[in-house]
Design a protein around this nucleic acid. Sequence first.
DNA 1: CTGAAAGCGCTTACAG
DNA 2: CTGAAAGCGCTTACAG
Lengths: 337, 337
Amino acid sequence: MTLKDIADKAGVSMMTVSNVINGKNNKVSEKTIERINQIIKECGYVPNLNARSLTSKSSNIIQIIISSEDTYSDENFLENPYISYMVGIMEREFRKNGFYTMIRSISNDTDVNTLLKNWNMDGVVFLYPNNHLDYLSKSSPCPIAVFDSYTDFKDIINVSSDDEKGLYLSTKYLINHGHRKIAFVADYEGNPLLTKRFIGYKKALEDSNIEFNSDFIYKFYPSYEGGISAGKKIASDKNGVTGVVTTADICAIGVMEGARLEGYRIPFDLSVVGYDNLKLCQYTTPKLTTVSQDVTNKAITASNLLIERIKTGTNSTPNHVITDVEIIERHSVVSIL
Amino acid sequence: MTLKDIADKAGVSMMTVSNVINGKNNKVSEKTIERINQIIKECGYVPNLNARSLTSKSSNIIQIIISSEDTYSDENFLENPYISYMVGIMEREFRKNGFYTMIRSISNDTDVNTLLKNWNMDGVVFLYPNNHLDYLSKSSPCPIAVFDSYTDFKDIINVSSDDEKGLYLSTKYLINHGHRKIAFVADYEGNPLLTKRFIGYKKALEDSNIEFNSDFIYKFYPSYEGGISAGKKIASDKNGVTGVVTTADICAIGVMEGARLEGYRIPFDLSVVGYDNLKLCQYTTPKLTTVSQDVTNKAITASNLLIERIKTGTNSTPNHVITDVEIIERHSVVSIL
DNA sequence: CTGAAAGCGCTTACAG
DNA sequence: CTGAAAGCGCTTACAG
């Protein structure tokens, strides 16, 4: 069942049927429109989008690329709740706007450009991190959106959250609850995003006239395992730390676990603040106080900027957006005033 | 840059270039192959897969459909860790086999057939639940794979896990630890999957000569909130229940929370067993003992069956597979022997 | 308001 | 081993 079949049944040309299907109704009389729609319905005709893409030079497909720093090619990137949440939101936004969503995970050496050209993609979103941006930004066949990138290609849509403010808030929150010796957990060096957060931590200390103490910096990878190591070390260091700020909920949960393994009671012996506000913050004991980035908002913002760029070729608002951040209070911080 | 351009540069026909690209090397001399590959590389030529799909009647795209019982069209289905994990695994399997993955979430009234025809999809996977199977199975334009379906369309690839055994194991586990009054939490009625699990629960009781007591059945929706309600009610019922089996980790976590809110200490006053073995089982206090379905295995099995069906038109092994299930011991069950 | 022609970039089926 | 022809199902650009 093709356009031609419908045209024949209706006794019109393919052009007319095509116009009806694409809603170019000003070009066709109402009677014809009705008749054609009727026939389309009866026959269960469905347009072939491969053919449409081939001629129209636009596929209506947006590619979501999920990548990782490490090149474990067998890793399941969608296991990261942060990533899968974003993908879910974006698929919804794309769909609402008539786009189709392809997903693909890649390793560092994958040639993304080939993929984009293969399908004539209308746009592409990169989810963490951005190793590919350097060369893609110069030769991408379609508009690009990324998150949390600190490289500054002007042309790329980039939505991040206020990382510096995030750690400023969590550190300040501990200070306001009487904490003075506050540990920071993350091996931030060489990582622009984590460095921003580290700067927020330092600034909060400064603003409260608390001297920075490098002994309180625990340079562990901000994962569950890294958190456990940090928590153990903090407990055994006995250097008077009463509160910990982290750069990931999962790491904060690890810190609680590690400290507990050393005999600490949480939060009484150690207050902990997370980062991300993942769902699982409410499943831990104690429930985790954390910094929330509005992930939904980030995903929607990026989607809409990308769609606008695809449709109009430009953006009417700035294409680098920094979203706000806030503290979510739960029960993992104790006041020691 | 098209096939024709490459052919012109190489001084051969498009056919020859096409054969080289598609690895039909027995049809082309080695010298020609080398020369053509060289030119392709130099020019950065990338085949247009829309054109290929159009002529070859096969798109190499597999559609993953994510749907829900309820029709909240704004729900983010990928927020479910179970679903997003599966999607991640399947994307990997498809990619390894040369397929592209589209994802789309749908509500009950969405016409999936149109979508499949639109892109000439090679296959489709449905992730929970299967409202669409009834009519799709009769008219689907491509092979279908589903999970955990208890409808029995012979032609559909269906991978489920041994639900009855799952609850049998978790109930038996509690019995072996001295529990006699064991609660079951889930409103199983009308839900074939949950009913299977309920049957497993009953069978374990029978096998140990423990009388079934309907007072111990707590018909709450197996979510976090449902679990909290169940946990509260179990605690306040004071009917001697010492252990609880559930049909979802998230529900088990809720049960622990609800019982705690009523003053119970977990696991000393109440032992709890989950279902699914989600990552977050290890983040709770106590860490959750649970039933593990090998989700990776399920996803890979379904993917491979689907790919085989696509490539050969049939399956060399049964297309209804039931995967095994096991208990993962952690700390949420206490022995009262 | 409607249509005939050309073409998008490939592959299939056939001929040599 | 190589090629010329036809066609996949659409849309664009033009003509009337």
